[in-house]
Design a protein around this nucleic acid. Structure first.
Lengths: 295, 295
DNA sequence: GCTATCCGTTCTGTTTTAAAGAACGATTTG
DNA sequence: CAAATCGTTCTTTAAAACAGAACGGATAGC
């Protein structure tokens, strides 16, 4: 009881044009052959795909349904054919990495670094929203998605989240600040620059605050690390962020690290789809030590 | 030079398990047959899909590529088979409507109203972001998307935007307001509740303001009509919105319509994919008069 | 280091399936 | 009302998918 894709293809072609004879000519087959195979498809599916009115063919409701599926199936097939037809040359290895747009660029670069020097390989980096990226992952348009939070897979979407690394999160502010802020005391006068509410780091920070019964005054909520860096540099507020993001500023003394927050981490996850043949290059990326990623 | 889906199917099955003999048993064919057909596929594509190492099969880079496509192709195919296998009963007509989440619920209801009484038809309503909805449309998971702005199609995405209706936009505020606001004078003391910046209505309003060299004080930007209605009702600010949204409040006198804004409209578009066989029910929905939609 | 086994490939003959041609029937056109 | 158009059905022919046997390289056990 398997679907015959050859029959489905003929059905698709006929449904697209609406005419059996013309399609037969276009495909260089006889109309009798076309007619028979579509009939066989209908027999197998157990329902009429066309409604025969006089000498015209109209799609039935079942036909419309089948046509929608056929459309995606054969569009994909033609894309595949085109990929092999062009060039004809051997296919280069491709690694396609999606990253949540707000993720640390440092980390992204660290992740793909081993691939940057390789001439035998194409690297594709895409940023976007989580929903968008996961959809691409499911459609096999991406090999891995980098995120700062794990996702739960289910039977329909067998995603696998693997923590790649985590780094401490500190209070970062101008080095001129006096008295130096110490968590959680002596902070009442200050305003904070915090990660956005949907961020796991922010969640941990809020929990820490509520443990100490401290309600921070919020100057800004930012979900982009690069943006947070700018705000930390150009305001007198205290930013809650991983020190690596502002490594340069810490080094040259414009900013100062006022201490890591206990239990607050920024975490990095790789989300993949379980599959039998993993690309060896990707596998190597995913099995590195944390240190290699965070430097 | 056409792709043979039968061959691709065998390739897919073997690639999934990684073993030719086991797959042959599972599919009830001889391994020689499997081997030959996969070879034929490779010949046609012009590249090896498997790397034969000793008595093991590994996917080549081209194979990985082909496997990704095969996965989506045959997943779709199996879904289609399942749809026809279950039931076996005749397929009911389905109309699947996507609507931008912020679109007037009144309008959405008006649009689908002719379908609500019909027993012979399933109606599926989905809301979401524009990107998401357009993706579903392209994947044939939706028949039409309702939006308040048109989209441009291109050769890759042959979207067609059709304006279904438009309605005037007024200044709406508490009926107690004195003196009654008249655009654009006598508004300097008031704050506005406006549609969000990415909205076409907002754009038209901004153009009107700049024409009169008037800069409105903004109390809130809201992209959801239902929310705007609440704010108009519960604040003393002036809302820029279509009067129909607050029909009840206008009727019972809590709110008042202080006049339509010239050249400012809220517009409604239906976005579809050009296709040969449109569902007759959908076609009927799309060719109605504006009045039927806006009541 | 030899033998037995496993597993994929290749060759050849057989079976199944797809395709073509002719006859038919229904519908539209002039 | 005849001629043309278009899809279906039946029968024959061509092309494919398939099975079985022989082959060969790789692995495992003794």
């Amino acid at each position: 009881m398997k679907l015959n894709y050859h029959h489905l293809y003929y059905f698709w072609q006929v449904a697209k044009s609406g005419h059996l004879t013309r399609t037969a000519e276009a495909l260089h087959v006889s109309q009798s052959s076309l007619s028979q195979q579509i009939r066989q498809l209908e027999d197998r599916l157990g329902q009429a795909l066309f409604i025969r009115e006089g000498r015209q063919l109209h799609l039935s409701e079942a036909g419309r349904l089948a046509f929608d599926y056929a459309e995606t199936i054969f569009t994909q097939g033609e894309e595949l054919s085109a990929l092999f037809a062009e060039g004809g040359h051997a296919h280069r290895e491709v690694v396609r990495v999606g990253a949540v747009a707000t993720l640390s660029r440092n980390f992204q670069e660290g992740f793909v670094r081993p691939l940057l020097g390789r001439d035998d390989l194409d690297l594709i980096l895409q940023s976007g929203g989580m929903d968008d990226l996961l959809r691409r992952l499911s459609a096999h348009k991406l090999d891995v998605v980098l995120s700062n939070q794990p996702v739960r897979g289910d039977s329909e979407h067998p995603w696998r989240s693997q923590r790649l690394a985590r780094q401490p999160v500190s209070l970062i502010a101008s080095s001129q600040l006096s008295p130096p802020p110490v968590f959680p005391d002596g902070l009442s006068g200050h305003a904070f620059i915090l990660p956005g509410a949907e961020n796991a780091t922010r969640h941990a920070f809020d929990q820490l605050c509520s443990h100490y019964r401290f309600s921070p005054k919020i100057a800004a909520e930012v979900d982009d690390m690069a943006m947070m860096r700018l705000l930390a540099r150009d305001t007198q507020h205290i930013a809650v962020m991983p020190p690596v993001v502002v490594r340069d500023e810490l080094h040259n003394g414009t900013l100062k690290d006022y201490g890591a927050l206990p239990g607050v981490w920024e975490e990095f996850y790789a989300i993949t789809i379980q599959r039998r043949f993993e690309s060896p290059s990707l596998k190597a990326l995913l099995t590195r030590s944390e240190d290699a990623l965070l430097d």
